[in-house]
Amino acid sequence: MTAELRTPGSPVEAARPPFVRIAGVEKAYRPRGRALQALDPITFDLGVGEFVSIVGPSGCGKSTLLMLVAGLIPTTAGEVVIQGQRIIRPYTDVGVVFQQDALLAWRSVLDNVLLQIDVRGLDRRRYEPTARALLARVGISGFESYYPGELSGGMRQRVALCRALVHDPPLLLMDEPFGALDALTRDQMVLDLQRLWLEARKTVLFITHSIWEAIFLADRVVVMSPRPGRIASVLEIDLPRPRRLGMRESPAFGRYAAAVRQRFQAFGLLSET
């Protein structure tokens, strides 16, 4: 297939300079003196405007990889390079959604979103309309003055998502952002994220447990092995955009899902007996 025939968002990785380069990145923790290899060397690139999903079993080092890319923890070996710059401290031109919503209990919903603006020393008044619009978009309007302790888990995660987007960063790192949502809201959020991405074309690293979510959103799906995490396979997802929920039942989608599932089964996960 040629690049011209592709719908927007399809993988053309060779044609794009890498935005993020993950080169032989490895991580060992030392909990209570014992060495624990969380990640074996990982190498892959994220092209500019590319959406890459990572799926893998629990504990395989997905969150660790995200923290390494964000520059929040040091690598044991290898390096992360973002836009030609080697990451040795937190990378800040980014929006991060962590696995835990990580909201500040003492700030209202709106102030939690605007935390991004306050810490960066930007003009609050300029960004407040953006913050309100984002909140409305994910169905949180009317709750701007609530405290996180007064929201449901799913609502909190949506606030965290708005916080990651409000300053319009070129790179998004998302660690199971929809993990705490009910199936219905989750479908809606996946559609919203796709729409946002189609409009703004950010570079996205998206971690999930959900095979369908990974395939539905991504240009490429990286499948990881159980701990210590390695890249088990990389799938190019060649489905037209915008993708529709009904596509989940299509044969092409089913083939991708089967490919991922078979990788997991090869690791002895998903036993059916």
């Binding site: 964000a70 800040t92 810490v119």
Partner: peptide
């Protein structure tokens, strides 16, 4: 202070005082 909250503000560029 929860470490994930500290990480959130660090990735916003917060220094130790912030």
């Amino acid at each position: 202070a929860p470490p994930e909250v500290i990480n959130v503000v660090r990735s916003m560029g917060a220094n130790a005082f912030q």
